[in-house]
Write a protein that binds this DNA or RNA. Structure first.
Length: 267
DNA sequence: ATGCCCGCTTACAGCGGA
């Protein structure tokens, strides 16, 4: 089973590229972020035409996440991230989390979350506080899922550069929210709880990028970093076969600033 | 220190992104 995470940076602007990528790489599940569309603007019929079902959680202009699945419609489990006690967080209006069950390629249940973690810049400040608070809530939700002892993936744009070897230049972005010690520590706490960073486990030396800025020719100069992650529960990690980045899709016309990041799991 | 580029909007300039 192939599961991919892809920050598409606007579904209206990206639709031709997104459909092309789905047809070329045929992921069984695709977790999307930065849909940037209200729910009623989500182009579900375009996905159905090429054999994908979907659920989505949108808002106007910003954020927005979706889960696509080949040959099936995901069964929604959780829309929006609960508070740290597991109760709905009515104060959070940002569409950044969606969780569903899908059938894996052997017909067994598999839990999938799509995550668009807050950027947090500028830091320090209220946006950074929101990021760290959101990461606490994510950790609590992740702990709940792990307690179910099921195969599961938490896939998305985490807006966290985990290590210095996950950025093209270790001196770059020193003041950025994406690589602050607090951001990294919050990410590491989720891993320490038993979640498995797929790309890191296959490429321990780093040097794998999933994002290149549109500005300053960053892609041409390969000035990227790794912020899109697929974290696996123990039962899913046991089935991990391969992982990678569809690097070449970042270089196409009208590409997102992120590249699709994926894993392959055994049945 | 800021902008670079890009997508979004009761748009044609300003905001957010990372």
């Amino acid at each position: 089973m192939r599961i991919a995470s892809y920050n598409i940076n606007g579904i209206k602007a990206r639709l031709p590229r997104l459909l092309e990528w789905l047809e070329e790489t045929q992921p069984d599940v695709a977790c999307l972020q930065e849909v940037k569309s209200q729910d009623e603007g989500f182009p579900i019929s375009e996905f159905e035409k090429i054999g994908y079902g979907a659920i989505w959680h949108g808002q106007k202009s910003f954020n927005g996440v979706a889960i696509l699945a080949k040959g099936q419609t995901p069964t929604e489990i959780q829309r929006g991230l609960p508070d740290i006690y597991g109760n709905p967080d009515e104060s959070d209006e940002q569409a950044r989390y969606l969780e569903a069950d899908v059938n894996d390629t052997a017909g067994n249940n598999f839990r999938v979350s799509t995550i668009y973690l807050p950027n947090g810049n500028p830091q320090p400040g209220p946006k950074f506080d929101y990021k760290l608070a959101w990461m606490k809530r994510l950790r609590a939700r992740a702990a709940h899922i792990k307690s179910l002892e099921i195969p599961a993936v938490l896939a998305g744009d985490y807006n966290v550069i985990p290590h210095d070897h996950d950025i093209y230049n270790k001196a770059a972005m020193l003041d950025d929210a994406l690589r602050q010690p607090e951001s990294r520590a919050a990410y590491q706490r989720i891993l320490a709880d038993g979640w498995h960073d797929s790309i890191e486990s296959h490429y321990p030396a780093g040097g794998i990028w999933t994002y290149w800025d549109y500005r300053s020719g960053a892609y041409q100069r390969d000035h990227g970093f790794r912020i899109d992650h697929l974290l696996l529960s123990p039962l899913a990690a046991d089935r991990l076969e391969k992982s990678g980045v569809d690097h070449e899709h970042r270089g196409r016309e009208k590409a997102s600033d992120h590249a699709p990041t994926w894993i392959m799991l055994r049945d």
